[in-house]
Computed example of a mutant assay.
Amino acid sequence: MYRRLVGRLIYLAFTRPDLAYTVHTLAQFMQHPRQEHWDAAIRTARYLKGCPGQGILFRADCDLQLTGWCDSDWASCPLTRRSITGWLIFLGGSPISWKTKKQHTVSRSSAEVEYRSVAAATAELKWLKALLVAWGWNILVL
């Protein structure tokens, strides 16, 4: 039941950026969930029930401008000491792409973690710009 609920939350997280961190954390325990993980998943479902109208909205008069934000947290996982990288990309005022993920390696410094975060966000911005230009959109990247 836990896997089924978290799988549905993962699906919802594609259109609800407010769920990204919570679902990321819940998904780490898919193989061996405990009662506290189930309770957190149920609490997330109750949150969704309380605020059904949120999601991604695009305005008709938005400017075609890509803006990216990134951040990282050095050695934030208490179990593995790996860092977490996250980024968020906006088209106009609407979020269109985001991700939070543990880095693959243990970094030696916070500067190294920040460089990895900037590199991941830059790669996503370049890919989105190429995709939108291929569709014929004139895009400004900030």
Rank of each mutant, 00 (worst) to 15 (best):
P95T: 06
E114A: 01
A121F: 04
R3N: 15
L132V: 10
Y11E: 04
R4S: 14
Q28P: 09
A27R: 14
A120H: 02
G55C: 05
L125N: 04
G55E: 06
S110F: 00
S110C: 07
Y21K: 04
L125I: 03
W135V: 14
Q35S: 14
W127K: 15
L19W: 05
L57N: 01
I84E: 06
K129C: 12
R4V: 03
A20H: 06
P33V: 00
T85F: 04
T22S: 12
K101N: 13
A27E: 09
L79W: 05
R16L: 15
G50Q: 09
D61S: 10
S83K: 00
D71P: 11
G136V: 15
T100S: 15
P78Q: 01
M30C: 14
A45H: 07
S76C: 14
E112I: 15
T100M: 09
L64Y: 10
L140G: 07
S83W: 02
Y115G: 11
Y47G: 03
L140N: 11
L131R: 11
F29K: 11
A120Q: 03
D61P: 00
I139M: 15
R46P: 02
H104A: 13
R108A: 13
L79E: 06
S117T: 00
R43P: 14
L131S: 09
R59L: 12
N138P: 14
I139A: 13
G92H: 10
V23F: 04
Q54R: 07
L66G: 07
T67V: 09
T105N: 11
H104Y: 03
Y11M: 02
E124Q: 09
V133D: 15
C70P: 00
V113Y: 04
A60S: 07
A60D: 03
I84F: 02
H37T: 08
V118H: 00
S110V: 05
T44M: 02
E114L: 01
L12R: 01
M1I: 01
T15N: 12
L19K: 00
Q31A: 15
W38F: 01
G93R: 14
H37P: 08
L26Y: 08
L142A: 09
S76I: 10
H37I: 00
A120W: 01
W38D: 08
S107C: 04
C70A: 12
K99C: 03
H37C: 04
L5W: 08
Y21S: 01
L5T: 05
M1A: 05
C70D: 02
T105M: 14
M30P: 12
L140F: 13
K102S: 14
T22F: 04
F29D: 13
